[in-house]
Amino acid sequence: MEKLHLHYPAGAPAAQAVLVGVVASGDLEVLIAPAAAGSCHIVIHSAADGSAARWRAQLDRLFADGQAAAMQMEINDFGATPGVVSLRLAQALEELSA
């Protein structure tokens, strides 16, 4: 198991808490909780060892521009492929803005 912390700049605090997904084989769980304005902190627990570079690349694309809401995000990953990860993240961000 690998544990990863990522920090990004962000906008105003997220409006609500969101949970999507399940820690099933090939799937993951994403929890979003509001955080203080300007900060996006992401903690990843991944069953796939050696996946840090992939996680960083994938999350940089979404959060490096600092446009996302300020949040504390937690990802519990049970070996999801990058495709599943991006679908779950899109689902979580969509529910956040719903």
């Binding site: 198991m1 627990h45 049970f78």
Partner: peptide, 19 residues
């Protein structure tokens, strides 16, 4: 899930927990 009552035993055995 946001109470974050994780299993303390799974992570100790290197298994990803669910919230």
């Amino acid at each position: 899930p946001f109470e974050r009552l994780y299993s303390p035993w799974l992570s100790a055995q290197g298994i990803v927990t669910q919230a």
